[in-house]
């Protein structure tokens, strides 16, 4: 099994005709993800040319993509100024699972956007995230497909390339994944560690979890408390940013130590107190996971 995406995914790509949108749509289709529609306002009625001559209908609105093509999942590759609007449109059209790849979405717009998504009963992943991949089933976003393999481990991460680092090590060590999720590097995100952990807990095929966090906020600490209280399967963790100075944004908008809060040390401590095996270096993630799985 997998979480959030899988056999029933019917994907609409918002911003399908843009540079990033078209490139990644082809990659997702090559992986076998059912892309049923694209949305670019003003280009409704046209078609997107996918690999092997496959054609994807383009609509002006997400509403049309839902009504006419049966889309239930959306991925957003539109510029920052329009990304929050795209999230609202998807939720308004009844999309169940929305993935926002775009980086640089104004945070104040997200406060309202997240409330709307919740009110509509949708789930948002991101913004500023690499998306989600269920090896062998579906890929929604930009995670490189060649490094994943099906297997028993769920991966949750705030970072993109650091996730690749961890996943490639797991795969090389013969440990596959149920689903890999990049939850995003922004201060306000739709799906946090606890949300992803809850979903993995319900997935019988997920036997262990990798959690990759970083400085900023308290999401990791809350996740550690949740793991301690609710989870019986092993968790391996890693926290980036031990050498980051306070008060400076380290690339991700959310990766900032505010005052004395959100340091790597306090996150590592909460992980350890919750019985999470913490890797000191990325290369130890696969080693610790081998121990956890007894292989």
């Amino acid at each position: 099994m997998s979480i959030f995406v899988g056999e029933s995914t019917r994907l609409v790509v918002q911003g399908i005709t843009g540079r990033d949108g078209s490139f990644h749509t082809r990659q997702m289709m090559e992986y076998g993800t059912p892309v049923v529609a694209g949305v670019t306002p003003g280009k409704g009625g046209q078609h997107f040319e996918g690999p092997d001559g496959k054609k994807v209908p383009i609509f002006n609105t997400v509403e049309d993509a839902v009504q006419k093509a049966g889309a239930n999942t959306s991925v957003i590759y539109v510029p920052p100024a329009f990304a929050a609007g795209a999230v609202l449109e998807a939720a308004g059209a009844g999309i169940e699972f929305i993935v926002c790849i775009t980086e640089g979405v104004p945070v104040q717009e997200m406060t309202r956007g997240l409330a709307y998504v919740r009110d509509r009963g949708s789930r948002l992943l991101g913004p500023n995230c690499p998306g989600i991949i269920s090896p062998g089933k579906a890929k929604v976003g930009i995670l490189p497909a060649q490094i994943v393999a099906p297997g028993p481990v769920g991966v949750i991460s705030r970072s993109g390339t650091l996730t690749y680092e961890a996943v490639v090590q797991l795969t090389d060590a013969g440990i596959g994944q149920t689903t890999c999720i990049g939850i995003g590097g922004d201060p306000l995100i739709g799906t946090n560690f606890v949300d992803a952990l809850e979903a993995f807990k319900e997935d019988p095929e997920t036997e262990a979890i990798v959690m990759i966090g970083e400085i900023g906020g308290t999401d990791e600490q809350e996740a550690a408390d949740w793991v301690k209280a609710n989870l019986e399967i092993p968790v391996v963790g890693f926290i980036a940013g031990q050498t980051a100075p306070p008060g400076r944004r380290m690339g991700h908008a959310g990766a900032i130590i505010s005052g004395s809060a959100g340091t790597a040390e306090e996150k590592i401590r909460s992980f350890e107190e919750a019985g999470i095996a913490v890797a000191k270096r990325p290369v130890e993630i696969a080693e610790l996971m081998k121990d956890a799985l007894g292989i």
Partner: peptide, 26 residues
């Protein structure tokens, strides 16, 4: 972000960039 050490780092991705700095320290 400028820091005080002597190992110049050039990385793709914020998370990997932080992890690289941490590994330099390690």
């Amino acid at each position: 972000v400028k820091l005080d050490g002597n190992v110049g780092c050039c990385v793709n991705g914020a998370g990997l960039a932080m992890a690289t700095m941490d590994l330099v320290k390690y």
